[in-house]
Simulated scan of single mutants.
Amino acid sequence: MTTVPLSSLATVIRSKNAGPFLLTFDVMFEDAAHFDTVWESGRFTKPAMAELFGVEENAITSIFAVPRGQAIKVTMRRQLPQGKLGESDMYGCQQHAPLLDLAIPLRVA
């Protein structure tokens, strides 16, 4: 099976704070075909996201698709609250990197 990195299909992959205890990840696509390919790949599940980010499955609080917006949203608990000693990304904007290389299987016709 052929796979490609998520970054080759998505137009935007970003992370940001969703309050002091949560991070949210946005994956946005230029067209419905790319969105459908990624969403239907089954790679956006709580177990898969937990493994990708090295957290317990219960740290992933939600995953949902926004078909009209051609986007996927993932929310997870921060490992440390925003601003706590030892926390290294106050704005949560550098946490999306593992998503860039997420292998997405391509349908071969």
Rank of each mutant, 00 (worst) to 15 (best):
F29Q: 10
F29W: 05
E30S: 13
E30D: 12
E30Y: 11
E30A: 09
D31Y: 14
D31L: 12
A32N: 14
A33Y: 08
H34S: 11
H34N: 08
F35Y: 15
F35K: 11
F35A: 12
F35G: 09
F35C: 07
F35S: 05
F35W: 11
D36G: 15
T37F: 10
T37N: 10
T37D: 10
T37C: 14
T37R: 12
V38K: 13
V38E: 05
W39L: 11
W39G: 03
W39E: 07
E40L: 15
E40T: 15
S41F: 11
S41H: 15
S41V: 05
G42W: 08
G42V: 14
R43E: 13
R43T: 15
F44Y: 08
T45H: 13
T45G: 08
K46A: 04
K46T: 13
P47M: 03
P47I: 06
P47V: 04
P47Q: 08
P47G: 07
P47W: 05
P47N: 06
A48I: 01
A48H: 04
A48N: 04
M49F: 04
A50K: 02
A50N: 03
A50S: 05
E51R: 14
E51G: 05
L52R: 03
F53Y: 08
G54A: 14
G54Y: 06
G54R: 08
G54P: 10
G54V: 06
V55C: 03
V55W: 00
E56L: 00
E56C: 00
E56K: 00
E56I: 00
E57R: 05
E57V: 09
N58I: 08
N58T: 03
N58W: 05
N58A: 12
A59C: 00
A59S: 01
A59L: 01
A59I: 02
A59E: 00
I60F: 01
T61S: 00
